[in-house]
């Protein structure tokens, strides 16, 4: 709060900081604010001023075969990749937290490394190794690649959730006669579910926005939504791009809200008071 007796220098600091931050935030949200209205443009140029309102670009996206195919492909590749990353990542995270062995830190680092290695290197390496196996130009190859990229997010979020997990609950379940599988599904999984789901959301977002690996591994038949946008931006940029962009922004808002809800729930469960 600015005190009424603040000196001019303090006032300058107060308003200067807020002004600067305001501009920075404008910079951050400007692209989103600019692209959404253009998706309703009646004209066929992706620029202002708009000549009128219309839904023709949404119609175009929904009816054009190439956009349809891209949406279908993304809806095939991302869920499967996410599922694979979630299952393998959750199991491994539980193992990494509970097991003790030499080289655990190194193994963890390797399993996390797809997040760190520049994506072009991942793409080129997979392209060269997958090609002789017939995995380029196939859904299988693409799903495997996207799953690898999503795994680190699942591991880190589930590991973080497990930090606050009381393993005595597992012991209690076992002592009451539950077998390990029942214990996992009835005790462990409900507790780590928020971690698994937010890890899954990150993995999904990663796959759903992935373009570099897809550029290398996918043939035109497997072109995903970002891949189709990439060629759209390169070749003929039209308001159809803005329509797809608006749909994607809606989707990311939805994911962000889900994540925020999960985070709040997790804090509540752990007894962290909202500050």
């Amino acid at each position: 709060m600015l005190q009424p007796y603040a000196s001019p220098a303090e006032r300058l600091w107060y308003y200067g900081l807020r002004g600067l931050v305001g501009l920075t935030l404008l910079f951050l949200v400007l692209p989103i604010l600019v692209i959404i209205p253009l998706s309703f443009n009646a004209d066929s140029f992706l620029m202002y001023p708009m000549t009128g309102w219309s839904l023709r670009w949404y119609e175009e996206v929904i009816t054009s075969p190439s956009w349809q195919r891209a949406i279908t492909n993304s809806m095939i590749v991302s869920p499967f990749a996410t599922l694979l990353a979630m299952i393998l990542g959750t199991l491994a995270a539980i193992g990494l937290v509970r097991a003790n062995f030499r080289g655990k830190a190194l193994l963890t680092a390797i399993l996390i490394s797809p997040m760190v290695v520049p994506v072009v290197i991942v793409a080129v390496a997979m392209y060269i190794s997958f090609a002789p196996l017939g995995l380029t130009g196939s859904y299988t190859g693409l799903i495997l690649a996207h799953a690898v990229l999503g795994v680190p997010f699942v591991i880190t979020t589930v590991t973080a959730t497990l930090q606050g997990f009381d393993f005595n609950l597992v012991r209690a379940a076992s002592s009451l006669g539950a077998n390990p599988v029942t214990t996992f599904f009835k005790v462990t999984l409900p507790q780590v579910a928020p971690g698994v789901i937010s890890g899954g959301l990150f993995a999904f977002a990663t796959s759903f926005d992935e373009v570099v690996v897809t550029l290398f591994l996918a043939s035109p038949e497997q072109a995903t939504l970002p891949r189709q946008m990439f060629s759209g931006i390169r070749e003929n940029i039209s308001p159809a791009i803005a329509a797809v962009a608006t749909i994607l922004i809606l989707l990311s808002t939805l994911m962000l809200m889900t994540l925020e809800t999960l985070r709040r729930r997790n804090e509540r469960l752990r007894g962290v008071k909202p500050a």
């Binding site: 989103i32 600019v34 992706l46 926005d209 373009v211 970002p226 946008m229 962009a245 994607l248 990311s252």
Partner: peptide, 30 residues
């Protein structure tokens, strides 16, 4: 509120943002 304004673009597809910057920065852009 500020955090949401930071996270929203963060969660938005990179290609969406590139397309938006083309709209903003082109010769006839904003």
């Amino acid at each position: 509120t500020l955090m949401i304004l930071v996270l929203l673009p963060f969660w938005t597809s990179v290609l969406v943002r590139v397309a938006a910057w083309i709209v903003i920065l082109q010769n006839e852009g904003l």
